[in-house]
């Protein structure tokens, strides 16, 4: 096991930003870390990179407890590299930026040159070696930051939203680099993202964080909701100020006016062509905007009053023959709703 976290907490003053009872991260895999802003993703990455220490709890790396002494931590840091969301370049050339970690490790000059050239070629930045690192675009900076990390041949690569601030072309390049280094060099990767598609294409496993806690769902179909009325048996819940759902009062257990987070299970939402649709409560209309295959199921993105994801079995998808652009009707039964 690469990492094992037990009862790990990170607090700032009275605020707990991370609270993970148990988590294991396996070697040689790609993990996607999803969650809204402020969910604790970056904090977790910093802890995994040994740049921050947890306030309490235990963390093991390679089945050994992570030491507290700075010198030993430094030895671990040399196996794990974090690439920031907005990586910063040292104010020198691209070559010298990539060279930094090798120099620290006292790698001989000739070897350094060969490894730097190889790393820059891997990210397609070899022609920028002598360029000033400060003059690069966002995408180029991200690629050089990757080269700067990969030249060190790390066991683990941690990427904080590696494609958040770059254009589509560079996004594709970065994703491809990550996939390649995992497959060819067996580098374990943990990356954070808001982009569900990236998770689908790249990750072997997805971890979801919400308010510092790991959640069972993947944070898709999580909506802020407001309770409008509560009856003895049924309450009205407004999702993202746009969709009204009637739900059992016992399920919601919240007062009128309070705000909660609601998760709609994509596998439990019913979908049908609008013409053949449902007439029951809690139905609303939308249009299919994307269809993709995912782990043996079909994932449909539906633009309704809010964007909703629905997952169908392959057989159900074939039976319904739904297509992109098709007008559909969704039904959210009470079994599809969980208060987060």
């Amino acid at each position: 096991m690469l990492y094992q976290l037990n009862h790990l907490q990170k607090t700032y003053g009275n605020r707990t930003v991370l609270d993970i009872p148990f988590l294991t991260i396996g070697s040689g895999k790609i993990y996607a870390l999803q969650g809204p802003n402020g969910a604790g993703k970056s904090t977790l990455l910093h802890i995994l990179a040994f740049l921050q220490r947890p306030s309490s709890g235990a963390i093991q790396y390679n089945n050994r407890p992570v030491p507290a002494a700075e010198a030993q931590l430094n030895r671990l840091r040399r196996q794990v590299v974090l690439v920031d969301q907005n990586p910063i370049m040292f104010s020198t050339t691209v070559y010298k930026n990539v060279e930094f970690g090798l120099k620290i490790r006292a790698v001989p000059r000739q070897q350094r040159r060969a490894r730097i050239e190889q790393a820059l070629a891997l990210v397609g930045m070899e022609q920028f070696a002598t360029a000033s690192a400060f003059k690069l675009s966002g995408g180029e900076t991200q690629r050089v930051a990757l080269a700067r990390a990969l030249v060190l041949d790390p066991k683990v690569l941690l990427c904080d939203e590696p494609t958040a601030s770059i254009d589509t072309e560079n996004q594709t390049a970065v994703i491809e680099i990550l996939r390649r280094i995992n497959a060819e060099n067996n580098i374990s990767i943990v990356f954070t993202t808001h982009d569900r598609r990236q998770t689908d294409v790249l990750a072997h496993q997805t971890l979801s964080l919400n308010q510092g806690r790991l959640t069972g769902n993947t944070n898709e179909n999580v909506f802020l909701a407001r309770i409008e009325t509560t009856g003895e048996t049924v309450s009205r819940c407004i999702l993202a100020d746009r969709i009204s759902l009637s739900l059992p009062t016992a399920l919601i257990a919240a007062q009128v006016g309070s705000r909660i987070q609601v998760h709609l299970d994509p596998c439990a939402i019913l979908i049908a062509a609008r013409t053949a649709g449902f007439t029951a409560n809690n139905t609303f209309d939308g249009r299919i905007t994307r269809i993709s295959a995912e782990n043996g199921r079909v994932r449909l993105q539906v633009a309704a009053a809010v964007d909703i994801c629905v997952r169908l079995s392959m057989s159900e998808y074939r039976r319904q023959k739904l297509m992109v652009g098709e007008e559909v009707r969704l039904h959210v039964g009470e079994d599809a709703v969980t208060v987060v």
């Binding site: 430094n74 794990v80 974090l82 910063i88 620290i104 990390a149």
Partner: peptide, 26 residues
């Protein structure tokens, strides 16, 4: 000096003295 310089130096394997030198240089 941006805090990311120190963090970047540390994650690239620098010890405290080496990361201080990075900040000094910047």
């Amino acid at each position: 000096i941006d805090e990311r310089y120190r963090r970047t130096a540390l994650t690239l394997g620098a010890n405290r003295r080496q990361s201080a030198l990075v900040i000094f240089k910047e």
